[in-house]
């Protein structure tokens, strides 16, 4: 199944002109060192982990596989010469693309450099539920032991999404609900939307899926949601947690589960921002 890039790799390595000028590298979005080491035998070219989705986010969270032909552009930057999405199992065609990209790289002229990348239209995810339903989910995630408070405040943390908060009068705690909307690094997967809540100490409270799918677009059921909730129950979200697909994943939704773990792992940054903004006092 993986043979077509391996074949391309072999072909480049045999070509004296391309051998030292072209390098193939796989960047594994959301995978850690262990995952990559476990699967390494399948690949003849280097695969490096992008455990925290840093590169994946830098390139606009593409579905995978996504391919980029690029050349060094100074100061650690790359200039994109070509790109394509999805499998292209025709090695001849791929090899022709490599040669064409190489030609562009050497001549430099056919590339029309975009003046400002911010000019690109944004591709923001839209939460796929009505506002009233979303409000209900937020309230549900912020209800702690029957303690309610009508004053829910919304905080926009820009790239970290929207946070909703309320102060509990009885226990004098403040709790937060974060809405997460994430693209999935997989070509057949659907975007992930969920709400989770935590207290001012980073302790997990609730997990409510807004829209999460398994293989074949089957929606998560209550059992799946409960399993994910149980994975975090009674735990602090400030402790670094490594995703173990064999134990932590929901069946037929491994990559979605991994993205949920990654998003929950951002809670520490969220809390730091909330401290800076004065919502949490230390």
């Amino acid at each position: 199944m993986r043979s077509y890039i391996n074949e391309l790799f072999a072909r480049i390595e045999k070509d004296s002109e391309l051998k030292n000028s072209v390098k193939i590298i796989g960047i594994a979005a959301g995978n850690n060192k262990g995952d990559v080491a476990f699967e390494e035998k399948k690949y003849d070219y280097p695969i490096v982990p992008d455990e925290k989705y840093e590169f994946h986010q830098l390139v606009g969270q593409p579905p995978t596989p996504f391919f980029i032909f690029a050349r060094p552009y100074g100061n650690g930057r790359l200039l994109v010469l070509d790109s394509f999405l999805g499998k292209l199992e025709d090695t001849d065609k791929l090899f022709a693309m490599v040669k064409a990209a190489m030609k562009k790289s050497l001549s430099g002229s056919p590339v029309t450099l975009k003046k400002n990348q911010n000019d690109q239209e944004s591709d923001e995810l839209v939460i796929p539920v009505e506002d009233s339903k979303l409000v209900k989910m937020i309230s549900q995630s912020l209800a702690v032991n029957g303690e309610h408070n009508d004053k829910i405040e919304k905080i926009n943390l820009k790239e970290l999404g929207d946070i909703y908060t309320l102060a509990l009068k009885k226990s004098k705690r403040r709790i937060f609900a974060r809405i997460v909307a994430r693209k999935i690094p997989c070509v057949d997967c659907h975007d992930v939307f969920f709400v989770y809540s935590f207290d001012d100490m980073g302790q997990f409270i609730e997990f409510i899926p807004i829209s999460i799918s398994k293989l074949d677009n089957e929606k998560w059921d209550e059992k799946d949601s409960n399993k994910m909730k149980n994975n975090f129950e009674g735990k602090s979200l400030l402790t670094e947690r490594h995703f173990n697909p064999k134990v932590d994943a929901i069946s037929s939704a491994t990559i979605s589960s991994e993205v949920i773990y990654n998003s929950m792992g951002e809670t520490e940054i969220v809390i730091r921002k909330l401290i800076d903004m004065g919502y949490i006092k230390r």
């Binding site: 890039i5 391309l8 030292n20 000028s21 072209v22 390098k23 193939i24 590298i25 796989g26 960047i27 594994a28 979005a29 959301g30 995978n31 995952d35 990559v36 476990f38 699967e39 695969i47 590169f55 994946h56 390139v59 593409p62 995978t64 596989p65 996504f66 391919f67 980029i68 032909f69 690029a70 050349r71 060094p72 552009y73 650690g76 930057r77 790359l78 010469l81 490599v98 990209a101 190489m102 790289s105 050497l106 690094p185 997989c186 697909p245 491994t254 990559i255 991994e258």
Partner: peptide, 18 residues
């Protein structure tokens, strides 16, 4: 930094190993 490598062309595959 891959972009600091002494190459003319980088072919990057963004993937997930699962």
């Amino acid at each position: 930094q891959p972009a600091e490598m002494d190459v003319k062309l980088l072919f990057i595959e963004v993937l997930n190993v699962y």
